Simulated scan of single mutants.
Amino acid sequence: MKKTLIALAAVAATGAAFAQSSVTIYGKVNVSLEKSSLGGKSNIASLDDIHGSRLGFRGAEDLGGGLQAKFQIEHRFRPDTGADATFNPGGTNATTGVVTPASSTMWNGMSTVGLAGSFGEVRLGRYYSANFLGAANVPDPFGGDGAGALRGVGMYANRLAAFPVIRTANIIHYSGSFSGVKVALSTSVKESDSKAHTSFAVGYANGPLDVGVGTDRASIGNLVNAYVTYDLGVAKLAFGMGNTKSTAGLKSEGLLLGATIPAGPGKVLVGLARAKNKNSGVVTNSKLGLGYLYPLSKRTTLEASYGRDSKAVSSATGKKESGFDLTLQHNF
């Protein structure tokens, strides 16, 4: 009898502990029919994964006193082939004989554990840079994805300094929000890299206004971003800029103008972005992005986007770069 009571008490205690914690399975699956010469693509009709299909797990445990322990792991994959999104088959250099082994990063999206409370949140592991979440990814109506995406041109200035460094391994990341002021700091532990990747962002959001700045400093160079968005109700307007400087001294600047406009059950996405090589004074990119998102349900969306760069010439076609994609996306 005593053993039975002890067992029941143990089960009850375990149940109480579980009641204070939670684990969520989430994800996104999207497949796009694409034909594009943008960014060096082949301009051949193909199926693609433009929004980063993923399977993730996140959880939180109440530690008491307003403190939580949290974790999040996220795998990225290509639904058109079923392959790991980061898989590299490796190979052998025919000239040098150097062998590059096959590789992949299972939890490419993120893999973090941390603590959260009234002070904000600290994450340890593999995660986004503070500037990416806090500034660089904010103003692009397309979220940096698809034929219409403007982030690569306007916020990364056509990646002339090899940016973006979107995620960082071995990261210590802090974020917090206090009376509308948003702050984020991140730094990687140097380990095998030649220089630690440090990042910072600060912003302010109040009603329809959202404004912020951020910076990345890494072994490839430095990046500075700024943005402002304003929601008029009939349209959400966005402005962004990016300045890069590579370790080799190459400087570039980018500008982005965008709008998200409610239209029927969905919304229209539109914007312009420009990138300029500051060393030569040459405008390297001038891109138009157009798109429409149509919700089939709360979780499923049909999306079409188009982009054309009037400055960049495709090596595949010999003409100005352009592209179109049609995407079916489901979130769970």
Rank of each mutant, 00 (worst) to 15 (best):
E34C: 02
T247I: 13
N137I: 08
L124I: 09
H51K: 15
S36G: 01
V211E: 04
N331W: 07
N43F: 03
G214H: 02
Q72I: 13
T112C: 09
N170Y: 00
V234L: 13
G249W: 03
H197T: 15
G59E: 10
G323I: 04
L296N: 02
I261Q: 10
F142M: 04
T327D: 03
Y306W: 11
V31G: 00
A147T: 10
G264T: 01
G203I: 09
L124C: 03
I220W: 05
N93Q: 01
T187D: 12
K70R: 15
G207F: 09
M155V: 08
T284P: 03
G143E: 05
L250E: 14
S103V: 05
S22T: 13
G258F: 08
A275V: 02
R167G: 07
A19P: 05
G307E: 06
I172D: 04
L272M: 11
L269K: 13
T229E: 04
G64N: 02
T92F: 01
T284E: 08
R78A: 13
R151N: 12
P79M: 05
M106S: 11
A184T: 03
G65H: 02
N206A: 15
L302E: 00
D145P: 05
G120C: 06
A94W: 05
L209T: 02
K251C: 08
Y204M: 07
